[in-house]
């Protein structure tokens, strides 16, 4: 048992253009603007039980920590 944040990526939310998005092992959700990205991230985090992390390049990752 540990206090800290460690986990797996459950989903990715991004405002990136479609040509910059490639397939992978993780579901990717696209948003048109930051507001939509924040709302999507918030809802996904609550549904999936994860925390939202901002990578700073228009990408949010939702991670589950244990």
């Amino acid at each position: 048992m540990d206090i800290g944040l460690y986990g797996i990526i459950l989903a990715i939310v991004t405002t990136a253009e479609a040509d910059r998005i490639y397939g992978g092992a993780c579901p990717i959700f696209t948003a048109y603007e930051d507001k939509e990205k924040n709302e999507l991230s918030f809802k996904l985090a609550r549904i999936l039980g994860g925390a939202v992390h901002d990578l700073g390049n228009g990408v949010h990752i939702i991670c589950r920590h244990h």
Binding site: L5, N38, F42, A51, V52, H53, D54, G56, I61
Partner: peptide
């Protein structure tokens, strides 16, 4: 610092949502 939560110069966590 951006989305990074810090105390003095120690980085704690990356918090993505503005409301949090």
């Amino acid at each position: 610092e951006g989305s990074l939560l810090k105390i003095n110069d120690i980085v704690f966590n990356n918090v993505g949502l503005p409301q949090v």
